[in-house]
Nucleic acid binder design. Structure first.
Length: 409
DNA sequence: TCTGGGGTCCTAGGACCC
DNA sequence: TCTGGGGTCCTAGGACCC
């Protein structure tokens, strides 16, 4: 049988336009055509998603919600409903996997597809991309933009430049000319800090960067970033589309509506976070060797403290004990804390943890399993630690909603 | 009413081992 | 009583991504 060569531009990047806002508009059609903001509605919230009508007012994602409201007073502001976005995202991935099994989700609203093997069945990649856009619009009622290019970096660049609601196909023969005039910030991994440092050396465009000696780039950006940026500036990106990568860490954090100076309240909030992370670890059948405490103070300075355990942990109680140990070791006095977080990393399959713990005390693990099972059957509010029930911590988002759920029990 | 939450990766210094 | 060099792990901080 004749074996066909891969098409020269086999990678698709599909990126939804203003995804959270679009999902909200889809279920409330009266919002169509109006500026819609999704994000934190508390005093310290930021914009997670802004409809294009809102962006016309200069609103951008990650902007403080207060600033966004000032710029666009008539905007409809909605709190995020991640359950709804997860459902929409799952439908989206189903549709992609209809096209090819080589789908790599990057977040709820974007994914890479390698369609290099689908040409005979489905046509050339730009045709496949156009078909996907039509199907996403017709079947899900949501707008998407698509980039079609020789590799991941270029495909993502193209989907960004195709927005909103467009498709851009970059041919391999056009790559060098296309990249040359673009700003260095368009390169993956060059953010505001790196762009500013490059600017100080007179390096503004990708063409400038190509003309810079490698040793100079290493001095400006460090060895690893210089290597990556040089390759991307030449349109080279060897990363393949990987359908599944196990998580490297799991974390949860909470910004308080008002700064907190009560250590006991911090310990209680850490219990809630330990419970949240612990459940996710157990659901993923992994355990963590490293536990990290994160604190952000009133002046926005941030510290982390971590500890690596000999026995990996997935139990709420163990995570909490370790992170409180890290907190207490700081001997804080008269602090004002705006954010507290609990991170885990160095994850291992929890079968390995069980074996190491065979001789240990597994009462906490049994308690967790029982609580997880009850929540699976009766919903998340079914089981809550007694110490959390009277929590009056000023919180935002999920925690506040969860607190409301308990009160309604 | 300045600055969310969930991630990944890199750097750099020190401990420790051979 | 003068002290190399490589490898790995741990810790803390920071840039960057969506």
């Amino acid at each position: 049988m004749e074996r066909r060569a891969r098409p020269p531009e086999p990678i698709l990047h599909v990126d939804m336009d203003a995804f959270y806002a679009a999902v909200e508009v889809r279920r409330r059609p009266e919002l169509a055509g109006r500026p819609v903001l999704v994000g934190g509605t508390g005093g310290r919230g930021v914009v997670a998603s802004a409809s294009y009508e809102a962006r016309a007012f200069g609103v951008r994602s990650a902007m403080p919600m207060a600033e966004a409201r000032r710029r666009c007073p008539e905007a409809v502001v909605l709190p995020p409903d991640f359950d709804a976005y997860r459902v929409a995202s799952a439908s989206l991935l189903d549709l992609f996997r209809d096209v090819t099994p080589l789908v790599e989700p990057l977040s709820l609203d974007e994914a890479f597809l390698d369609v290099g093997g689908a040409e005979r069945l489905l046509g050339a990649p730009p045709r496949i991309g156009a078909r996907i856009r039509t199907r996403v619009r017709d079947e899900l009622g949501l707008p998407a933009s698509v980039g079609v290019a020789p590799n991941k970096f270029l495909a993502k660049l193209c989907s960004g430049h195709a927005k909103p609601d467009g498709l851009l196909h970059l041919r391999a023969t056009d790559v060098d000319a296309y990249l040359a005039p673009l700003p260095v910030g368009d390169l993956w991994g060059v953010g505001a800090q790196s762009a500013a440092r490059l600017e100080r050396f007179g390096i503004r465009t990708i063409a400038d960067l190509r003309g810079t000696p490698h040793a100079t780039l290493v001095r400006i950006l460090g060895a690893a970033a210089a290597q990556q940026v040089s390759a991307l500036a030449r349109g080279q990106d060897a990363r393949t589309v990987v359908p599944y990568e196990p998580a490297k860490g799991m974390s949860a954090e909470e910004t308080f509506d008002r700064d907190v100076d009560d250590l006991e309240l911090l310990r209680r909030e850490l219990l809630r976070l330990a419970d949240k992370v612990g459940r996710r670890l157990r659901r993923g059948t992994v355990a963590a060797r490293t536990v990290t405490l994160k604190l952000r103070f009133a002046n926005f300075s941030t510290i982390t403290r971590s500890r690596t355990l000999t026995v990996p942990a997935d139990e709420t109680t163990v995570l909490h004990r370790e992170v409180v140990g890290l907190l207490d070791a700081l001997r804080l006095e008269r602090v004002r804390v705006r954010l507290v977080g609990l991170g885990t990393s160095n994850l291992v399959p929890s079968g390995a943890a069980r074996q190491l713990d065979l001789l240990g005390d597994d009462r906490w693990a049994r308690l967790d399993r029982a609580a997880d099972a009850a929540r699976g059957r009766f919903g998340d509010a079914a089981v809550t630690r007694g110490v959390l029930l009277d929590d009056e911590a000023p919180t935002t988002g999920d925690a506040a909603a969860a607190a409301e759920d308990w009160r309604q029990q």
